[in-house]
Design a protein around this nucleic acid. Structure first.
Lengths: 333, 333
DNA sequence: TTGTATGCGTTATCAT
DNA sequence: ATGATAACGCATACAA
């Protein structure tokens, strides 16, 4: 391995001069600098990251931690992060699994953007306490070294439920994500509130109250299928279903396809995330949309601010309703 | 930052004893070791990766380089790699973009698995020459430090074309990937050969020869749409289309939907990759399937062998034909 | 069984 | 403008 020492020897200067030249310091004479640079190129010199890290205490790498690599969902999010970070001289690496947590405390990365249930909040706070910089996308965490960029789950769930309620059905299923999921919990809470707020005040001419049935899912297709089975079993009249993400809604589609019932006619479904697949399923899935790219880009920007020591306020990503035939066969608009 | 020096001081031993104890050396007395370990825990000691790297010259991290993060395609591939690597004490990080290439020469990672057009083969060979270990998934590269795990593109393209030819149409479009893509080039070559081999020897009772029309695409939806426009414009009788990946086939679907023609009836389409979306489009897309997870897992295994200095032979991932209504409205099986 | 001393490749301080 | 040297945190050969 060729080091600055080799360059120094070959160029007939000292290692400190080499270091200065390599880092473009104005202190070194242009002639010397050129000589050094050409020797470096000739020897195929590449700086050693470990040594530099040891001195400077930074790697210019930041890690994006995800619960899993699967799910087309992440592509745009990561792209958004990368664009912002690269522009500022940082590299992005994507990590998953608890084994990779070590990268942060061992200082192999300068910080982390976290959308990863495999981190407990206690663990993250511990890192923050030790001075590591974080942006979290999947929880609320208040600490000077941590910034939040969260989806507006409440607005999304409200939009979704109100869209369903327009249909006038009295029975609405909510298929939630796993217990530990912040996004799921927020959406569920908002769904409950929205139903409550729209409950006819009894006694009332519209009669029957709205029934909200909660089913715990896992944000994967299998739990959507499981939910569908129960819904089909209990079917007596048209019902609404709010799947707390699109993935489960697609699972539900698959199961309903095997039944006598029809999505958008008997079973009215809305999801959350607007993943690519949702526009291709038949009928098109109504859902809650938001810009994944913008989410990633904003997270990265916030991260850079945290690193720079600027005081940063938490941010929110806004969401919109995507109407579609899965709720209403002939969408009004 | 707490270092072994701090532990040594607090535990009343020397730093080398601390180092030994931390690394579980049998040389240190259990009593001393316990003492040291407890002090380390108490001080929240975390080893510094940079310092360890500087000495040991390894990071236990390997990088997977992808052309881009977008495309649901990669999830299973990465999952396959990760499972194998984690089991062997390695961490996987995913990188994209030419800026991140530095991670390899700067020795921030112990090696790389490459499925990334942003690397030129010259660049990779240079790394290999300097002792870096590589597995390539998207090109042929022969070097002691490089192993290949490639798709059996030729078999796939042959299966696809022969399936199309069974229909008996005389006009077959091939929508290729970008010029530089190894997979695209291999598939295209095999498609040509298969058509040639199936050409009726003139003069012949079947009459007309098979016409193969090549169109350059880009492996994205937009190029699928562009291809569709030309195909629609030229339409006179039922035709076959071999999209060299599913992504483009989906783009083609979108454009054909706006036309009077129907997939599977006028325009007979097959793709390559069997991505998740392909089973949801209407009609289901015929395609070439292979196990992405196995591909990743095998790549990781080969990588570990290369690292271990074992002599490794190149590997091949086998593919299968997925018949569907996009080619034949009533599939025979 | 434990301690001393050296070096990994770099940056950066202080002389010159 | 350049050189000598210390320091970063750790592993390890060698000494005790």
């Amino acid at each position: 391995m060729v080091s600055i020492k080799d360059i120094a020897r070959k160029a007939g200067v000292s290692i400190s001069t080499v270091s200065y030249a390599l880092n473009g310091s104005p202190k070194v004479k242009e002639e010397t600098s050129n000589k050094i640079l050409s020797v470096a190129k000739e020897l195929n010199y590449v700086p050693n990251a470990a040594a530099r890290m040891l001195k400077t205490r930074e790697t210019k790498i930041i890690g994006a931690f995800l619960t899993g690599f699967e799910g087309s969902f992440y592509g745009q999010l990561l792209q958004g992060m990368k664009e912002v970070l690269n522009k500022r001289g940082y590299d992005l690496v994507v990590c998953s699994g608890s084994q990779s947590h070590r990268l942060l405390p061992e200082r192999m990365i300068d910080g982390a953007i976290v959308l990863d249930a495999s981190f407990s909040s206690e663990e993250l706070l511990q890192y923050a306490d030790r001075g590591h910089k974080l942006v979290v996308l999947d929880r609320e965490l208040n600490h000077p070294n941590v910034n939040q960029v969260l989806l507006d789950n409440k607005a999304g769930a409200m939009l979704a439920v109100e869209y369903l309620l327009e249909e006038g059905f009295r029975k609405i299923y909510v298929v939630s994500g796993p217990q530990g999921s912040f996004d799921s919990n927020q959406r569920l809470l908002a769904a409950r509130q929205t139903v409550e707020r729209n409950q006819p005040i009894p006694p009332d001419e519209t009669g029957q109250p709205i029934e909200l049935i909660e089913m715990e899912g896992n944000f994967d297709k299998a739990s959507g299928e499981a939910a569908a089975e129960r819904i089909i079993r209990e079917y007596t009249e048209p019902v609404d279903v709010f799947c707390l993400n699109d993935e489960m809604a697609v699972g539900l589609y698959n199961a309903v396809k095997e039944s006598p019932y029809v999505i958008g006619e008997h079973i009215h479904v809305i999801g959350f995330d607007n993943m690519e697949l949702s526009q291709f399923v038949q009928p098109r899935l109504a859902t809650i949309d938001y810009s994944k790219r913008k989410w990633g880009a904003l997270a990265a920007e916030q991260f850079l601010k945290v690193i720079a020591g600027e005081p940063v306020e938490h941010e929110r990503i806004y969401v919109t309703l995507v109407k579609a035939e899965s709720v209403r066969s002939r969408p009004s608009v």
